[in-house]
C-alpha cells in the first residue's frame, strides 16, 4: 500500500531521516518516537511537501494529511473552509455537502459548521483538521499528533473513529504518547533519530521488555549496573521502589509485567 525505501532527509548537517525503510499494509499504524525523532519530517516526505532522497510509493493513492501545525482562515465559516478542501480534493460538487457532513459528524463538530473558524477552540480546530484529513475518504491518511490538545472524551472518540474508518486503508498516527496508540493500532513503528528501530504488533513491542522490567527498592539504586533505565519511582506499602528496565537481571528485585511503553523505552534505550 505504502512503501518507503531508503528515505533520507537532512537539514544541513542534521540528519532528520536516515535510511528509513518501511512497508505499510492496510491497517492502523502507530508511529512512536521522541521529540525530534523525525516523525513529522517523514510525513512531510510522504506528502511531497519537502525534497528527500530515497523512494516513496503509495501507488497513486489519495493522501489525507493532518499536519502537526494546523489552522484555517479565521474569518471563514468552518463549512466554507471544508468546501474549499472538498473542491481541492476534487469531490464532485453535488456530493460535497453530504461528505462534509459525514466527516464533521465523525469529529463531533457538525453543530459548529456555520460558526467562524476564529470562534472555535484549539481542540475544535484540531478536530476540524482531522475532518479535513478524512474528507473524500483517502486510502492513505496521516495524522501528526492528532490528539494534541484534545480532552479525554475527544481522545476516546478519536480512537473509536479510527477503528470505524480504518478498514481497507493505511492510517499512520504519529505520537510520543504510547497510550494514544496502544489500544487501536494494529502495528507500531518505533522511530528514533531518523532511524526505524522496530516494527511489530502491540504484543511484540511489549515482548521487547519481557523479563527486563523490575521493581527495585530505592536503597539498591547504587548497585544497578549494565544498560538500565529508571522509568519510574513508586511507593508501595510505605516502601520506595524504582521501576527499572535493565538488560541484565537485578538481584533482590521483583520482576514486573512489561507493557508496550516498556517495550518502546527498551527499543529506544537499546536495553
Amino acid at each position: 500500500m505504502l512503501t518507503i525505501d531508503n528515505l533520507e532527509k537532512s537539514f544541513k548537517k542534521n540528519k532528520a531521516l536516515d535510511c528509513f525503510s518501511c512497508e505499510f499494509e492496510h491497517g492502523i499504524y502507530g508511529l512512536l518516537g521522541p521529540n525530534g525523532s523525525g516523525k513529522t519530517t517523514m510525513m512531510r516526505c510522504i506528502c511531497d511537501l519537502i525534497k528527500y532522497k530515497g523512494k516513496i510509493d503509495c501507488g497513486g493513492a489519495k493522501i489525507g494529511y493532518l499536519p502537526q501545525q494546523f489552522g484555517m482562515m479565521k474569518s471563514l465559516k468552518l463549512f466554507d473552509m471544508m468546501k474549499y478542501f472538498a473542491t481541492l480534493k476534487k469531490i464532485p460538487t453535488p456530493e460535497q455537502d453530504e461528505e462534509i457532513k459525514r466527516c464533521l459528524e465523525l469529529v463531533n463538530l457538525y453543530d459548529k459548521a456555520k460558526d467562524k473558524v476564529g470562534s472555535l477552540s484549539g481542540g475544535m480546530v484540531r478536530r476540524s483538521g482531522i475532518a479535513q484529513a478524512i474528507l473524500g475518504d483517502p486510502e492513505v491518511i496521516l495524522f501528526d499528533e492528532p490528539t494534541a490538545g484534545l480532552d479525554p472524551e475527544e481522545r476516546t472518540r478519536f480512537k473509536t473513529m479510527l477503528k470505524s474508518i480504518g478498514k481497507n486503508k493505511t492510517i499512520i498516527v504519529s505520537t510520543h504518547i504510547v497510550s494514544d496508540v496502544e489500544a487501536v493500532c494494529d502495528k507500531i513503528v518505533i522511530i528514533d533519530k531518523g532511524r526505524k528501530k522496530f516494527i511489530g504488533t502491540n504484543e511484540e513491542v511489549a515482548a521487547i521488555a519481557s523479563s527486563k522490567a523490575y521493581l527495585v527498592e530505592e536503597k539498591f539504586e547504587g548497585i544497578l549496573s549494565g544498560n538500565y533505565y529508571i522509568k519510574d519511582r513508586i511507593t508501595r506499602n510505605g516502601e520506595n521502589y524504582l521501576y527499572v528496565l535493565s538488560d541484565i537481571p537485578i538481584e533482590n528485585s521483583i520482576a514486573a509485567q512489561a507493557n508496550i511503553e516498556d517495550g518502546y523505552l527498551c527499543a529506544l534505550k537499546n536495553i
Binding site: R44, C47, L49, Y65, P67, F85, A133
Partner: peptide
C-alpha cells in the same frame, strides 16, 4: 499565517 498551507499542499497538485 493561518497554518493552513501544509494541509492544502499535501493534496495532489494542491
Amino acid at each position: 499565517r493561518s497554518k493552513i498551507d501544509e494541509a492544502i499542499y499535501a493534496n495532489r497538485n494542491g
